[in-house]
């Protein structure tokens, strides 16, 4: 899948990669672990694992709307994971994760593709109105979060922390 090829789709599709100093097997297991997606996607959506393959996504969209969908993982090969949304999704979408060995002892190159196909009524509003996070940022931050989790067991955060706003504790 190369979702970003069609220029007309650029705003609704994104692709990014990171290199992680861990073997592909370990990264694949970590990605499929039940609490991984909820943690690495928290900037974009609330993800709730339903079973090993299916996850429920919900996202607070602008104008007080909540968008919901379910995704199902279809494994294709040991170096590849792919998922698509199930029927009834507010915003139909698909994603794929590719693992490739990095040169030397650099570990594994992890490439994430996502593509959103909103129905006609929604697409007219543009991506900026549809999501609070554009797909490019969603993909990049998910990968950075995933790398941090794989290497350190935690995801860097500053929330909440002291600041002279919001009653002294920034959210």
């Amino acid at each position: 899948m190369n979702a970003a090829q069609d220029p007309e789709d650029l705003d609704l599709a994104a692709r990014a990669a990171v290199t992680i100093g861990r073997p592909a097997d370990a990264l694949r297991l970590l990605w499929l672990a039940p609490d991984t997606l909820p943690r690495i996607m928290s900037h974009f959506a609330d993800v709730e694992p339903i079973d090993e393959r299916v996850a429920q996504w919900s996202m607070e969209a602008p104008l007080g709307r909540t968008l919901r969908w379910r995704t199902q993982i279809e494994e294709k090969a040991s170096d590849h994971l792919a998922w698509t949304s199930l029927d009834g999704a507010d915003v139909p979408n698909a994603g794929a994760l590719q693992f490739a060995p990095a040169p030397g002892d650099r570990g594994t190159e992890v490439t994430l593709d996502v593509r959103f196909d909103p129905p006609g009524g929604l697409i007219g509003e543009g991506v900026a109105k549809l999501f609070h996070v554009v797909p490019r940022e969603m993909v990049l931050k998910a990968l950075y979060n995933f790398r941090a989790l794989a290497l350190t067991g935690e995801i860097p955060t500053t929330e909440p922390q002291p600041a002279a706003r919001n009653g002294g504790m920034d959210k």
């Binding site: 100093g21 650099r106 990049l140 950075y144 790398r147 941090a148 290497l151 350190t152 860097p156």
Partner: peptide, 29 residues
């Protein structure tokens, strides 16, 4: 600088380039 000690750059003692300690990479990238 906040450095994790686990990533490619920390392993090379390039601690201010740590790959995992920036909570807002979307602002720096």
């Amino acid at each position: 600088f906040v450095s994790c000690g686990e990533c490619f750059h920390c392993a090379q003692e390039q601690y201010s380039l740590c790959d995992t300690s920036h909570p807002k990479p979307e602002l720096a990238e």
